[in-house]
C-alpha cells in the first residue's frame, strides 16, 4: 500500500507540471463570439432596420447609456455589416434612428457590461433604455447552467462583454420579447488597449460572418 501511495504522490507531482490552458492564451485568444439564431423567425422577410445609436451600459446594478468613440465605432460597424447583408436602415430627416416607419422590420440594440462582479449585473435582467424593451434572456444566464452545470457557463457575460440584440419590431408589444438574433462578444473589451478597437470591430464582423442566415444577398 505504501508503495502505491509513493507512486500516487509522484504522479501527482509530475502531473502538476502539465500546462495550464488558461495561462496559454493571449487576451485576444480568450475572446468568444457567440451567436444565437431564432428557431422560428423567418429572416427572409426582414428588410428595414433601426439601430439605437447609443450603447446600453450595465454596470453592476445600474443601467445607463454610453456614447464613447468606441461605442460609436461598434454601432457603425454593425451598420456596415447590416448594409453588406442587404438591409436598409430607417433614418429620419436628421439622420437619427427612426422607428416610426410602418415598414420597420427589426430593431438592434447594443449593450456592454462594465465593472461587474461575476454575473450580478445581469440579474436585473432588463433595461428601460430604449423603447421600453427588456431582454429576458439575460435573466436566464447567471447560474442557469446553460452549458455545463457546476462550471462557469459560456453565457455568463462578465465585465468586458458586448452584446448585440436584434428584435422583431412587429412583436414590440409582447410582454416577453426574445431577440431573434443575438451576438455576444464575450470578454472583448478586456486586455491591452492597443488592440482594443480593431479587436472589437473584428469581433462584430465575425458575429455577422458566422450568421449567414441573416444575409439577404444569398
Amino acid at each position: 500500500m505504501k508503495r502505491i501511495a509513493i507512486f500516487g504522490l509522484l504522479i501527482g507531482v509530475v502531473a502538476s507540471c502539465a500546462p495550464d490552458p488558461a495561462r496559454d492564451l493571449t487576451a485576444e485568444e480568450t475572446d468568444l463570439i457567440i451567436t444565437r439564431k431564432s428557431e422560428t423567425h423567418d429572416y427572409s422577410q426582414d428588410m428595414l432596420y433601426a439601430i439605437f445609436d447609443q450603447v446600453i451600459e450595465l454596470e453592476d446594478d445600474t443601467i445607463k447609456l454610453s456614447d464613447t468613440d468606441l461605442d460609436r465605432s461598434i454601432i457603425d460597424q454593425i451598420r456596415a455589416n447590416m448594409a453588406d447583408y442587404g438591409y436598409t436602415e430607417s433614418l429620419d430627416s436628421l439622420g437619427n434612428p427612426d422607428t416610426t416607419d410602418p415598414n420597420l422590420d427589426i430593431v438592434l440594440l447594443v449593450a456592454k457590461f462594465t465593472q461587474t462582479e461575476g454575473a450580478a449585473a445581469v440579474q436585473g435582467g432588463y433595461w428601460q433604455g430604449y423603447p421600453g424593451y427588456w431582454n429576458p434572456w439575460y435573466q436566464g444566464y447567471p447560474g442557469s447552467g446553460w452549458y455545463n452545470p457546476g462550471y462557469t457557463a459560456l453565457y455568463q457575460y462578465e465585465s468586458g462583454s458586448v452584446i448585440i440584440d436584434m428584435f422583431d419590431w412587429a412583436k414590440r408589444n409582447e410582454e416577453i420579447l426574445f431577440p431573434i438574433w443575438e451576438g455576444g462578444l464575450r470578454g472583448i473589451l478586456t486586455g491591452n488597449a492597443e488592440s482594443g478597437n480593431s479587436r472589437v470591430l473584428n469581433a462584430v464582423d465575425q458575429a455577422f460572418r458566422q450568421s449567414p442566415y441573416l444575409n439577404k444577398n444569398q
Partner: peptide, 13 residues
C-alpha cells in the same frame, strides 16, 4: 456549434 444547442454558434480558440 454549441454541444447542446444547434442554434448557437461559438467562435473560439
Amino acid at each position: 456549434t454549441a454541444p447542446d444547442n444547434p442554434n448557437v454558434a461559438v467562435n473560439a480558440v
